[in-house]
Design a protein around this nucleic acid. Structure first.
Lengths: 177, 177
DNA sequence: CTTACTGTACCGGCTGGACGGTCTTGTCAA
DNA sequence: TTGACAAGACCGTCCAGCCGGTACAGTAAG
């Protein structure tokens, strides 16, 4: 078996995310991704036989990374609540000026059902957080506010200043207790 | 001058929103919109000479309606804060099971810059709310939570049950004071 | 009143280009 | 030599935008 030059799959996934971010979600074509990944179209289609499979790969890798990051956070600050860890993780994620997941828009355009696993993931996360908190109202407020933060980052709407961002996070942590 | 059969522009705009919602944002083609609006492709192109112009029309009409609804809310409940009115309006908007604005995804795919006016609108709204509140932290939490609510509705992610939705709104109104 | 002309609103076939996916032809490690 | 894998020319489809029509209201001259 010929060894993959580097890990082609990873490179392609990263390239796809880059293209979507830089050229816009509407310009995410197989050729563009292949060229960006330093791979031919044939090579891309070998790894992902279909555009839909590529999208699926993006979703799965995104969810895997997210889960890993969340577990790492909750583990390293074991005395805190999982909600606090989630808040901090999200705050860090959204501080990066560039939205890292514009490819989601391409996936939705391809087929709205690509959202299903993400939906399921979030639902599961919320359920886990529920088990841990006594005050459901506060939890919901925090959860939705984080969702808002992520949404703004995704839409590249930096409506909040840096100070406001910090104040928000502090307020959320206070509510979370 | 021949009178327009009905207001074609409005019909076309509504049809575009319908198509995006029902067939998915990736299937928003001019032909589909024209057919849905009971208009020929030529007729559509007469009213909106370009797909981009159609998207722009959607954005403008969306923002106009939103502003109107917000003004109506704040006027009819004059003793409350504008933030409370905004919360209630958004809660109502997001109770409708069908996301009303999936066309936004089509617009982003066409050109991410279509978000600019929406961004500006939200920024302006936040500024207006700031002038009215003493506690910036609470305002930010509420504002972002609403953003999260709207985002979930947009992505058709009904992670919250009806009871949770109500609890959330109640909690937000309490925070808003 | 009638005929000729003008501008508006709309129709639908056509085309050029872009894009997803296939196929043939390499290439290199084992 | 063989077989896993890459390359990129090629094909069919879809779609935005163009263009040559059609219908009809108003205007105006005869």
């Amino acid at each position: 078996m010929r060894a993959p030059r580097a890990n082609s799959r990873e490179k392609i996934l990263a390239a796809a995310a880059d293209v979507a971010r830089e050229a816009g979600p509407g310009s995410l074509s197989l050729e563009a991704v292949a060229s960006r990944a330093g791979v031919s179209k044939g090579g891309l289609l070998y790894n992902f036989p279909t555009k839909a499979k590529l999208m699926q790969g993006l979703v799965e890798s995104y969810l895997r990374d997210f889960q890993k990051a969340l577990e790492a956070r909750t583990a390293e600050s074991g005395h805190e609540s999982a909600l606090s860890a989630y808040i901090k993780l999200s705050a860090d994620d959204c501080e990066r000026p560039k939205p890292s997941a514009s490819w989601i828009f391409s996936a939705i355009a391809e087929d709205p059902d690509f959202l299903t696993p993400i939906k399921a993931f979030k639902h599961q996360l919320l359920e886990r957080l529920k088990e841990e908190t006594s005050d459901l109202g506060s939890l919901l407020v925090c959860f939705l506010a984080i969702e808002g933060l992520r949404s703004m980052n995704l839409f590249d709407s930096d409506v909040l200043s840096e100070d406001e961002h910090k104040l928000l996070v502090a307020s959320l942590l206070k509510i979370a207790g």
